Structure formats: structure tokens, C-alpha cells
Amino acid sequence: MKKLQIHSLPLKEVIADIAHGLDTSFVNDCGEYTVHLPAEWGTGVIKGINFDGGLGLLVYACTFKCDLEMSFSVDLTHPLKFLFCLEGSLSHYFEQDEQSHSLQRYQNIIVASQGNNGHVLHFRKNTFTEIYSLEIDRNRFKTKMSCELQKTKPSLRSIFEDDKAKQSFYYNGFYSLVLGELFDEMKTQQHDYLIKKISLEGQAYRMLVQQLIQYNDDLEGNSDRKILRKSEAHAIKEAVEIMKTELDTINSLNFIAQRVGLSSKKFQNGFRHFYGKSANEYLQFLRLTLAKDLLIKTENSLQEIKEKVGFSSQSYFTELFKKMYQITPSNFRKEYRKKSTLD
């Protein structure tokens, strides 16, 4: 394993230390600092940018050729860190306690070290890892938001007001679908200079806003959470693929929910969010869409089609088909063939 030591703050000096450890240089483009990994270390980039009010953003998008430990060790109070894993995985631990915390795809953590205790990030070799790290200088942030912090919930206020790092803090969760969409927006924006800088600053604050909303949501507990997570969105898409390929054998949607790792409530909420209908309604939509296709493209009997799309009752199949297409399956096939003959 290789190790990099970073002994500086703020982000400009952090990037400079990373570049020095990699035996390369960095680029300063209007306050956005970028290190391109040398070929002997791997591929990808590490970027850093500071904003007003104590916010900074570090982006790691790289593949290292060997396991790498990046140690942030400085005789100062470290920033409050919000880390989001978009791709790959990462391990984090505080320098003096070495209890490792794993960060997988779609997960995020909020970490604050006690005193001047440093942070250590462990990157796995040959694994593309994309991490967004929102870093907050709590002293500057507290000064800017002093009135608002006094009026916010104690659970949030205590995190930001501890600018002397009297206590450590650790939280982990799965970031929201809204945050996932924001990261996609940040990666695809094509603005230059002025618009780009203003846009990035706005996006950094949006990251913070959505993370704090999610943190409050997580405090409610799993059963009462309202915000859809990116990982749950991924699970819904996985469930749809299962439903499409196993239409004829699905007996229980709860079983599919369990297979993709969702509670029944989250499963149903996810379908309503993405498709505007319940999971059962969407299953029926898939079955009837396939039935229509089979009526057009095959010579299968109605009984065979009914079984292929997963209905046990012929009358129920006919009832639902008529409700969706305003015609019975048998008459639909007759009308389609008559029209095809005339054409």
C-alpha cells in the first residue's frame, strides 16, 4: 500500500500537497485546482475549489494502480466533511482511533474529528472511485449563519457550532435521489468560467441543503423516512427488470421487494414516484402490454397468452384487458387482423 501525507489547509494547499505526493504539478484555473494522476499512479483527476462562507468542494474521480491511503494530518481543527460515493468504494477512519468506516456506492457520511485528529481515506486499487467531499470551515460558516444556527434544531446546530472540535461526529446513510440528480447535473454542465463558478457554488450549497434535509429525515427512523434514496431508485429499476423477465411466475410483489432490499412501503412509494402508479398497477400494465404484443405477433391461444403473462384467471385477464384497451382480447385480435388484411 502507498501512502500520501497532506499537512495543509485550505483546499489550494491540500491540492498542492496531493500533487507533491504524486510527484506532479497541479493546475489553477480561476481558483479551481486540478491534479491529473501521473500514469505510474493510475488515471483520473482530483479537483478542489473554495467558496465564500467556509464551503469547499473536493472531487476524486480516479483509479489507482495500488491501494492508496491518503492521510489528512494538520495541527489545526479539520473541516466538517460531507462525503458522497458515486462510484466504487472508500474506507474512512480518524487518524488516532483507526476504526474504519466503509463507504459504498450511493452512500454518504458526515464526519468531524475531535481536536486536531486527522482523517484517513483508503482507496482500493484498480477500482474507479468517484467521491464528492463537501468541506466546511465551521468557524467561518458559523459566523455567516450565526442567527440562523441559533434558531435551528439542536441536532443540526451542535454539528456546526463545534468549531473547536470538542467532540467527534459520524453519520452514514444513503444519499437521496435528488442528490443523485444534482451530481449528474454537476458532471454534465458545460458552462465556462463565470457561469461555471457561480453554478458550482450554488450546487455546493444545494448539496448541503439536501444533505441536511436527508439527515433530518434519517432521524425519523426507517419506517417514517419520506425521502427517496438513490440506492432505492436503483432497486426499483432492478425490480422492474425482474418483473419484466418473470411475469409468468410472479406470485408476490413483497417477495420482489425483499429481493431488491426494500420495505413494502418504500417499494410502493418508489413505483408511485417513478411511474405514477402502485407496483401492482405497474405489474398489470406490463402483463397487459405483453399480452397485446403476443396477440399481434403470435398465433398463441388466449389461454396460452394468459398463462405467459402471469394471469391465473381467464375472466380476470379479459376484464383487465378490456379496462385498459376498451376491447376484449379476442376482439382486439380480430380487429387487428381485419385491419392488416385491408392494409
Rank of each mutant, 00 (worst) to 15 (best):
Q189G: 02
Q190K: 12
D162S: 01
K164Q: 14
Q150M: 08
S155F: 09
L177W: 11
Q189A: 03
C147H: 14
Q189W: 00
K197Y: 11
D162W: 02
D184C: 10
D184T: 08
R206W: 04
I198S: 10
F160S: 00
K151C: 06
Q203T: 00
K153F: 14
K151Y: 09
K196W: 03
I136N: 05
M186G: 03
E130G: 06
N126W: 05
L179H: 07
K166Y: 15
D162C: 01
L182Q: 05
Y132L: 08
I159S: 03
K196G: 01
M207R: 05
E201P: 02
R140H: 09
R140T: 13
K187T: 05
S146I: 14
A204Q: 05
F160T: 00
L177N: 12
E148G: 01
T143I: 09
T129W: 11
D184G: 07
K142F: 05
L200G: 08
M145H: 07
E185Y: 09
F183H: 05
F160H: 00
Q150W: 01
F160D: 00
V209T: 15
Q189F: 06
G180N: 07
I159L: 15
M145L: 06
Y205W: 11
Y193E: 13
K187G: 08
L134W: 02
A204L: 05
L182N: 11
K187P: 00
D163W: 06
K166T: 15
S133E: 12
E161N: 02
K166W: 12
I136G: 03
K153R: 11
Q190Y: 07
E181V: 12
K142P: 00
I195E: 05
D163K: 05
Q189E: 10
K166M: 11
S199Q: 12
Q203L: 04
E185V: 07
Y170P: 08
F174E: 15
I195A: 07
K144W: 08
K164F: 13
F183W: 06
D162R: 01
L179E: 15
M207L: 15
S155K: 08
Q150I: 01
E130H: 12
K144S: 09
K196M: 07
T129F: 12
R138C: 11
L177M: 12
M207K: 02
S168R: 12
E148H: 06
L194G: 00
V178Q: 15
E161L: 02
N139V: 14
R138W: 04
G173L: 09
K196I: 00
F169I: 07
Q190H: 11
N139I: 13
M186Y: 05
G180L: 01
L149E: 07
S155R: 07
D184Q: 14
F160P: 00
I131V: 10
D192T: 12
K166I: 11
H191A: 15
E185L: 10
E185T: 12
F141W: 08
S133K: 03
Y170W: 14
D184P: 01
V178N: 15
K142A: 13
L156G: 04
L182Y: 04
M207Y: 07
K142T: 14
N126Y: 06
L200T: 00
T127M: 14
Y193Q: 12
E161K: 02
T188V: 14
Y132Q: 02
K142S: 13
A165I: 01
V209I: 13
E185Q: 11
G202H: 10
D192N: 10
S199M: 12
H191K: 15
F169G: 03
K144M: 12
S168G: 13
F141L: 02
